[in-house]
Each structure stands twice: as structure tokens, then as C-alpha cells.
Amino acid sequence: MKIIALIKQVSDTAISLKINADATDIEYQNIPWVINPYDEYAVEEALRIKEKHGGSVTVISIGPDRIVDILRSSLAMDADEGVHVKDSVFDGSDAYSTGLILSKAVSISGYDIILCGRQAVDDGWGQVGSALAEILNIPSVSSILKLEISEDKKTAVAAREIDEGLEIVEVPLPALFTIQQGINKPRYASLPGIMKAKKKKIKVFDAGALGISPHEVGRNASRIHIKKLSYPPERKKGKVLRGDSKAMAKELANLLKNEAKVI
């Protein structure tokens, strides 16, 4: 089985962010970078499929030099090969163009199963996986919480999140799945894993190597134009009750009924 996990590097999800001077992006100084959390689950799921059914795991990421960190950490978790797609002409690509770039990269690697996150937690659109599957003309199942590959490796059964619970769907392979949190608990890299990762190969591809012409990708081709970033409106300061539990509970019931009028 050729298993691919697509990974993106994003700013840490807990830090407070600063908006840049022209309000079109965040300030990038001193940002702690992490792997997009959903993508880490995708890497873990890819490794579990490999361990059960055999094959290899390739992790692919588009981005500048700093993203080598997440490729290496995935290799340390036990992925076999890393692919770093980098070219300044890719900067500012929308989700469709990102899918287009990835379609070339995965086609070079070969694939039976492609796993990616359901959404990038930066300004992600929750679209790259769908766009990639559409371009490759393979089926895709989004926001999955379980995945089983059949013995003959021709089909997969996934549990997809729906509003009422889970929907169980079967798809023929090759197929793409976007991963929801809760599917697994990612492993920590072991020390030998980290040592071994240093020797594993990371291939680098640019636009030319992928056969992409610059006008198809990047900021100028983007179908989405970011006009402005802003901070969400601050909530006004509330009342905090202290003291006797009984009095507080009664007061709260009263406030909800008579002041906020929400019950």
C-alpha cells in the first residue's frame, strides 16, 4: 500500500496573534510553529494502516524552509519518506491551487490512500482535500473518525461525522479521507525514531519539477482575496458572584430569568 499523509505547518493554536500593519496577515515574528493538529492524526492513521497492511508512508508538505521540521517529526514517528514542495510562485495559493500542486506531487509518489486534515487551523478553508480528490478524480470521504481497509486492499470503510452521529461509508481505493480529531492518539517519536529520521530522505520539488506553470497558482490566481484581518469584538465585562453557594445559585437563577431573560 502506498499511503500518503498531507501535512501543513501552522502557528500554535494557543498563542495570541498580532495583525500586521496593513491588516492582511498576521505578524510572523516569534511564532511557534506546529504541525496542523488534524494532520498529525492523519500521519498517525497512515502509520497504523502501514503497520496492519504493510506498505509505506509518504508525508508531503508545501511551504518554505521552516516546514522541514514537521516533515522530520513525521519521519521520526516512523513515516518512510518526506516530500517538501517549495517554490515562491506558490505563495498565496488558494485551496484549489494548493490541491493542484499536491495532485502533481502525489502522482509522482503514487498512492492508494491519501489522508489529510479536515481543515488547517490557521486560515484554512477545509477544502484542499476535496480539491485534490476532485483533480485526481478519486472518491473522498470527509471528517472521518474511523477507517478500516479491507483484506484485499481494494476498498475501505470509513465512519464519517454527520450532525446526528456517524455515517458508515464504503469506498473503492484509491481514495482520499479527511481526518477529524478523535480518530486516534498520535504517538510520540522515540529516540531511535528521531535518530533514524535524520538519515531519511526528504525530496524537494519546485514548480518546474512538478510541471506547474506559475499562472495557475499563487496570489494572482487566487479566487479568494483577503481584504482585512480584525480582532473579534471584545465581550463586555460580566458579573462574578462570590460567597455562599446557595445564595450564588439563587442569584444566578434570578439574573438569568429577570436580567438576561434567557430562560
Binding site: S11, T13, S16, L17, I19, I26, V121, D122, D123, S222, R223, I224, H225, I226, K227, K228, L229, S230, Y231, P232
Partner: peptide, 18 residues
């Protein structure tokens, strides 16, 4: 103009389509 939460709701992003 479409405004949507970005960075996990820590910021709002206003975009136009093209």
C-alpha cells in the same frame, strides 16, 4: 465581503471572491 473566523476564531478574516 464575507467575514469568517480564522485562526480558530482568534481573528476574523474579511474576504472577497474573484
Amino acid at each position: 465581503f464575507f467575514t469568517r473566523p480564522a485562526y480558530g476564531g482568534r481573528l476574523l478574516s474579511t474576504v472577497t471572491c474573484r
